[in-house]
Design a protein around this nucleic acid. Structure first.
Lengths: 152, 152
DNA sequence: CAATGAGTGTTGGCCTGGCCAACATAGCAA
DNA sequence: TTGCTATGTTGGCCAGGCCAACACTCATTG
C-alpha cells in the first residue's frame, strides 16, 4: 500500500505536464485498486480479474487468445492461470483440435469470484471519481478514453 | 519500448472502468516519455528529470528534502544522484551545519541538461494530447488534476 | 549531563506490471 | 519434406515504487 509519506509540493513544471497529472491519477487509481484487491481479493490481482472477465465475456479460449484480448503477455497468462486453476476458478483442458493448445474455461466458482471482484472494482470506481461531479465524470471518461488509443 | 503486440479488444466491463482508461492513458504517456528519454535523454530517466527540476526550482537542498519534494524515496534519491553526480550535472557537498546532511547543487551543465530534457518532455506533451482539441486539453487537464489529489 | 528519539544518507532487498528470449513441440503451407 | 508459424512454459530483465536495517548526528528532555 502507498504508505502516505509526508510529501511536499512537486516542482511547478511537473504540475503543468499532462503526463505528470495522468501519472498521479494513475497512482491513486492503482493504490485504490490494490487496496481493494488486498482487502477482498483473496490474493488475486489485476491479471486474474482481467482474465476472468475475458473468459466470462467470450467464453472458453486458448491462452494465446486470452493474452491477446487482455493485453497480457503469454508468459504472464500462464502464471496467472496457474493461480486461478489452483483455486479452481478456471479449468485447463487440451484442445482436441490442436494438441499444443489449451482450452481455458471459467468454472461456476470462477464466475462467483468474478462477481466479487467486480464489486470491489465498482466500489473503487466510485472512490476514484469521488472528486468529480456526475457531469465531470462523463466528460473525463470520454476524454481519457481518447488518450488511451494507441495510434500505431 | 511498448513493442505493439497485436492486441484484440479488451473485455467490455474493463473499457467501462475509469481506472482502466486511466491505466491505458498512463501506459501511453509512459511509453512516449520513455521513448523520448531513450532517444534524447542520454540514459537519464524520470527520476533524474524530477530531481533536476526540483533543484532548479528551489535551489540547493538536502537529499531528504529532494525526496519529499519529488515524491521519490530516500534510497532512490541516493541512486539517482549518483548518476547525476557522475555526469557532473549535480554536486554533493557536506552541509556545514549538519555533518550528516548533504547539500545538493545543480551545476551549469545540469541546467543545460534540464533544458534538453524539458524539451523532450514538452514534445511528449504535444504527442500525448494530440487526440484532443485545445479546449478538450484544458478540460482534461483540470479534471485529471482533481483526480490526482491524495485526500489523506 | 545523560539518554532518548528523530532525522540523514546508504545499502540491499522486495513487489507489480510489463516485456523478451529460448525451448520443445504441433500444425500448416510451399 | 521442409520449413514457417503458433503454442505454452520457463526463466529472466527492467522501471518505478516501496521498506528495513544500519551507522551516524542532532536536538530535546529527563
Amino acid at each position: 500500500m502507498p504508505h502516505q509519506h509526508p510529501t511536499g509540493p512537486a516542482p511547478a513544471r511537473l504540475e503543468a505536464h499532462a503526463t505528470w497529472l495522468v501519472g498521479r491519477a494513475f497512482a491513486r487509481s492503482a493504490g485504490l485498486l490494490s487496496a481493494g484487491f488486498e482487502a477482498y481479493g483473496d490474493g488475486l490481482r489485476g491479471y486474474h480479474y482481467r482474465l476472468l472477465a475475458a473468459l466470462e465475456e467470450w467464453g472458453p479460449a486458448s491462452q494465446a487468445d486470452l493474452g491477446r484480448h487482455t493485453g497480457i503477455d503469454r508468459s504472464d497468462v500462464t502464471a496467472a492461470l496457474n493461480d486461478l486453476e489452483a483455486r479452481q476458478l478456471v479449468e485447463r483442458s487440451p484442445d482436441p483440435a490442436h494438441k499444443r493448445r489449451n482450452v481455458v474455461t471459467i468454472t461456476p466458482d470462477g464466475l462467483d469470484r468474478l462477481d466479487q471482484l467486480e464489486q470491489v472494482v465498482q466500489n473503487v470506481q466510485q472512490e476514484f471519481l469521488a472528486p468529480l461531479t456526475a457531469a465531470q465524470r462523463r466528460q473525463f471518461i470520454s476524454l481519457v478514453a481518447l488518450l488511451g488509443r494507441q495510434e500505431s
